[in-house]
Amino acid sequence: MTSDLPTTTIAPARTWSAVLFDLDGTIVDSATEIMDSLAHMFTEMGVPVPDQEVLRSYVGPPLLDSLRMTAGFTDVESWEALNVYRDHYDEHLLRSPVFPGVKGLIHRLHDAGLPIALATSKPESMAREVLAHHDLDRYFTTIAGASDDETRSTKADVVAEALRRLREQGIDTENAVMIGDRGYDVLGAAANGVPTILVEWGYGSPVEASEAIAVAHSTDQLRGLLLG
């Protein structure tokens, strides 16, 4: 996301009851590994590999949908491509680093007693593995992601599942906030009545920030928006 994004202010009296985080582009810098696996997938499928800008557009949204709508694959081809991608990506999953300052931020939120959930379009099993590898899973009240069979894959469905699990644990979700980097995060959260703060260090474009309530240009700024 480019540095010319505007910062939208939030009323200082706002107190958040829970924080939902996206994973790719928000917590971990996974674009390189994802794009490499996408290139491998297209090659294996006998399709010309798109340029870097197009490959990057695949990072974030549910991949099965992107394979159908962006790549133009049939349903059968999309599933074949998805399995090829997953087999390759699984070998490189843990190479993606956490963005600077994010681990400390999550630690601070946890110490402040603010419930934290993950809401990612990445398969939940992979998301759990990534958080555990970086010793971050212990800070999360719940980890919600896409199901392996893709019956739960849209951001709206994943956010709904994260909120449901939080409520099951007696956590107030009336003033929850989503932290993400793409317009898909904004739309998926909004479908559940949850506002979104976008992070500048992710993979979104300025236009994707138009419906967000704020753009955080640093982890220190994001901490201030969440904790005051």
Rank of each mutant, 00 (worst) to 15 (best):
M69D: 14
G46N: 02
S66R: 03
L64Y: 04
P62E: 04
M69A: 15
D51Q: 09
L67T: 02
D51L: 09
V76H: 13
V49F: 03
G60C: 10
V54P: 01
T70G: 05
G46W: 10
V59R: 00
E80P: 06
A71P: 01
G46L: 07
G60L: 03
S66I: 03
M41R: 02
R56E: 03
M41L: 07
D75H: 12
V76E: 14
S57I: 11
E53Y: 13
A71Q: 02
P50W: 06
R56T: 06
E53P: 07
F42N: 01
P62F: 03
Q52H: 14
Q52I: 11
M45K: 08
G72V: 09
T43G: 06
P48Q: 07
L64A: 03
R56N: 02
L67R: 01
P50D: 02
L64W: 02
S66T: 11
M69I: 15
S66H: 04
R68S: 12
T70H: 10
S57F: 10
V54T: 15
A71Y: 01
V54M: 10
T70M: 14
T43K: 14
V54E: 06
F73R: 06
D75W: 07
Q52Y: 09
W79A: 05
D65I: 15
P62L: 04
R68L: 13
P48W: 05
R56Y: 00
D75E: 13
